[in-house]
Design a binder for these strands. Structure first.
Length: 786
RNA sequence: UGGGGAGUCGUCUAACGGCAGGACAUCGGCCUUUGAAGCCGACUAUCCAGGUUCGAAUCCUGGCUCCCCAGCCA
């Protein structure tokens, strides 16, 4: 039943959803509760959007719910304004937490109760060392820490101190509450982590009620447990914190079933930075106009930039969820934006850098109002606007060239071009000033080529946009580009990311636009044909004032092509340099690449010679080098090997089972957790040696044996693995399989030999678990290549 | 050099011992009153080395590289 290839496309899945599905199936939970837990100390960015989409998405798909919970445990950085912006952004993205809005600060009293519980159990203590002493006695990653002199205070003293900390009797830093775990734990996070610190500061919600505030590691797991969260999804850097998460929940009385933490990779994007700290720095240093500057990767910025919630959501879904640290190319986001806007943004015309075009054949005082559709032929939407045409027009400076490069399909002396939605014109003259700057272009129009006359029989090789000079409106336009010049602005540890700010990330111009543009209101999306998608800035749109922000330019294969041919002469040199620059390039684009290549060289070294013990093992028992090496280095496997010997199987086969199969099984359960012993394994090896069962069947048997105490032969018989298949049944089975997959067969005969495995797989399925793969393959081979 | 994670086209991501697939990017072509969109095609990948297996991206062993952890931040 693996023929999903022809079935409906598999629903989008990832390791998180798979885990949730299993948990539900296994009855670990009966409902799914996730949460999005921002700290209100900054604005949400596209990285948070990934988490929002994941958490709300998973909850929705499994019929559960997702909580919005403010993780507001640090009074010094958090503000109501941030909380408001976060809620606004999540709603804008299209998600609704319903009644499930929570605050860690609402749980402060309960946290305190749990702290008291830990103290009473002797699992937490008040430490009165200075911050410095605590840091110093924590040890390093390679050296264990030392116990605090206050570690063994009595429960009563701890309780007393903790109560007075709460009451505000001490200055900041005088004491902390710590969990009593293990100062020599290899996991730094488990070296008596801090649970509470004194902060004599006003909290934006609880005011002066508290003088102690819980730390993340103490609070977060409790928040999840209190809310009956099932799947606590967080980013990879919290992997080390998972041990404390579990420790706390195992040691206090929280509702069951308790939540479990799972980590996934946070989102990084090229040409930007994504940490709140760095974004805050950009704001504070005035590098951008604020958190909602359209160049910022914040949701507020993207909204002003004209990105749509739908685009951001589908982008997040497309990049997927995994555990690999990865940086997504910003082009992917841009693609999602264009894809959405393509069917949502009506088309209009505006000239960014105007050049006067005089249609000499058109009467000076005559204006024709054309009817121009708002949508291209492939967007199934109705609607049009009135577009004035006259003698004096503006066209884009880039759309005229006195000496056109090859392939130029726009206006040039003597050449014809179509004016979008209007007439074909031919350039008759160019007016320049003394320095050769082009002042205006003159042309004549072809009256019979009007767009409204349908197929006029005339074709121009290109089409350009334009506006009527007298009837146009001037609108300020902001052209946004990437905020940084480097794909990985944080890659160089020697330099600040701010050194890579793109000086040209914002260009403001006064565009000449067709009259319909004047009707726009804040938040409206449009496409300026041939240029890009734009949005009427929703923040600056006040009192009838209008500014257009360029959301994203259109793809421009001409620009790509022309820069390429411009650089044509340099091409060879660049090619020659490319190896060199790849090695030392500043661009982090290659930063993961270079080391990878190096790895290849390093590991192709000869492997160290066999140890004396391994050599003895090999010679005494006739083992392979690899088998001997593994056995010699794993005492528990070696013991098992020796104990399994003597049952009649060849030492080499026994070694094979021990080294390959036993090692794998013992990985999760441990050798002691296995239901079989050395003798059983030896017997299995013998049965294979003697041809009673084939290797494939034996592996299935072994898996069963690991779970339940049962002899190899018993399992073998119980599962009906004796697959003595005679030639004729084999033959007809092969025929049937080949007939069932005619397409694959054709491709195989066409040279796609990899399909042999595909057929064999199907065959083995058909023949049952006991079938002998060698024999089956032989017969299959005869049919495939007669 | 302690512990915890991760390595699949340029980029992101699938394949749960059986056809290395998709998307973005790139490059061609078709179409075109947007050099857009759309359509068609091409290109390029399993970190390395051994081993097990009829068959390995997947299992075993070893190595390499990258990320995270020594805040009274989250």
């Amino acid at each position: 039943m693996r023929n999903e290839r022809d079935a409906a496309p598999r629903e989008r899945s990832d390791f998180v959803r798979e885990m949730v599905r299993e948990d539900l199936r296994d009855g670990k939970y009966h409902e799914v509760v996730t949460r999005f837990p921002p700290e209100p100390n900054g604005y949400l960015h596209i990285g948070h959007a990934k988490s929002v989409v994941l958490n709300f998405g998973v909850a929705e798909e499994f019929g559960g719910r997702c909580h919005l919970r403010f993780d507001d445990t640090n009074p010094e950085t958090e503000e109501e304004e941030y909380a408001q912006s976060i809620m606004r952004d999540i709603r804008w993205l299209g998600y609704d937490w319903g009644e499930h809005l929570y605050h860690a600060s609402d749980y402060f009293e309960r946290f305190y109760g749990y702290a008291v519980e830990l103290v009473e159990k002797g699992l937490a203590y008040v430490d009165s060392q200075s911050e410095e002493e605590i840091r110093e006695s924590r040890g390093t990653v390679t050296e264990p820490g030392r116990d605090s002199p206050y570690r063994n205070r009595s429960v009563d003293e701890n309780l007393d101190l903790l109560g007075r900390m709460r009451a505000g009797e001490f200055p900041n830093g005088a004491h902390v509450l710590r969990a009593k775990i293990d100062m020599s734990s290899p996991n730094m996070k488990m070296r008596d982590p801090l649970l509470y610190r004194i902060r004599n500061a006003a909290h934006y919600r609880t005011g002066d009620e508290w003088h102690i505030y819980p730390m993340y590691d103490f609070a977060h797991c409790l928040e999840d447990a209190i809310e009956s969260v099932t799947h606590s999804l967080c980013t990879l850097e919290f992997e080390n914190n998972r041990d404390i998460y579990d420790w706390v929940l195992e040691n206090v009385s929280v509702p069951k079933p308790r939540p479990f933490q799972t980590e996934f990779a946070r989102l990084s994007l090229t040409y930007t930075v994504m940490s709140k700290r760095k974004l805050l720095a950009l704001v504070k240093n005035g590098r951008v106009s604020g958190w909602d500057d359209p160049r910022m990767p914040t949701l507020a910025g993207m909204r002003r930039r004209g990105f749509t919630p739908k685009a951001i959501r589908s982008f997040c879904e497309q990049v997927g969820v995994a555990k690999t640290n990865a940086t997504v190319e910003v082009e992917r986001l841009e693609h999602a934006v264009r894809d959405d806007l393509n069917t949502k943004a009506p088309r209009m015309m505006g000239v960014l850098r105007p050049l006067k075009l005089v249609v000499e054949s058109w009467p000076a005082d005559e204006v024709e109002w054309l009817d121009a559709p708002l949508w291209p032929h492939d967007v199934p939407k109705e609607g049009s606007r009135k577009l004035p045409f006259g003698r004096n027009l503006f066209i884009e400076r880039d759309d005229f060239s006195k000496e056109p490069p090859p392939g130029f399909r726009r206006l040039s002396p003597g050449a014809e071009v179509r004016l979008r939605h209007a007439y074909i014109v031919r350039c008759t003259d160019v007016v320049e000033d003394e320095e050769g700057r082009i002042l205006e272009v003159r042309a004549v129009h072809e009256p019979k080529s009007s767009s409204k006359s349908g197929k006029s029989g005339r074709k121009a090789k290109g089409t350009i946009h334009w506006v009527c000079a007298d009837k146009s409106v001037e609108i300020p336009v902001r052209l946004y580009d990437r905020l940084f010049t480097e794909a990985y602005p944080e890659a160089d540890p020697e330099r600040s990311f701010e050194e890579y700010l793109n000086p040209a990330s914002l260009e403001t111009l006064a565009a000449r636009c067709e009259p319909a543009l004047g009707e726009l209101t804040g938040g409206d999306h449009i496409q300026l044909e041939r240029q890009g998608f734009f949005v009427a800035d929703p923040v600056d749109a006040k009192d009838g004032f209008l500014v257009l922000n360029r959301t994203v330019p259109l793809r421009d294969s001409w620009a790509r092509q022309s820069t390429k041919s411009e650089a044509g002469t340099r091409k060879e040199t660049r090619q020659a340099e490319s190896n060199d620059s790849k090695e030392k390039g500043v661009g982090g684009a290659r930063r993961a690449k270079a080391p990878r290549k190096r790895a290849k060289d390093d590991s192709s070294r000869e492997r160290a010679a066999l140890s004396p013990q391994a050599a003895t093992l090999r010679d005494e028992h006739g083992l392979g080098d690899e088998q001997a090496r593994v056995l010699a280095s794993r005492p528990e496997l070696l013991r098992f090997f020796h104990a399994a010997l003597g049952g009649g199987a060849s030492p080499r086969s026994v070694a094979r089972w021990v080294v390959n199969e036993l090692a794998a099984l013992a990985k999760d359960r441990g050798i002691e957790g296995l239901a079989f012993g050395p003798k059983d394994l030896g017997e299995l090896a013998r049965l294979v040696d003697e041809g009673v069962m084939n290797l494939r069947a034996a592996r299935i048997v072994l898996e069963e044996m690991a779970l339940r105490k049962e002899s190899p032969l018993e399992v073998f018989q119980r599962l009906g693995l004796q697959g003595a298949v005679d030639e004729t049944t084999l033959d007809s089975a092969v025929r049937e399989v080949l007939e069932a997959f005619p397409e694959e067969l054709a491709r195989y005969r066409d040279g796609k030999k990899g399909l042999l495995g595909f057929f064999l797989g199907r065959l083995m399925e058909k023949l049952g678990k006991g079938a002998d793969p060698k024999k089956t393959r032989e017969v299959l081979g005869r049919h495939l290549d007669p």
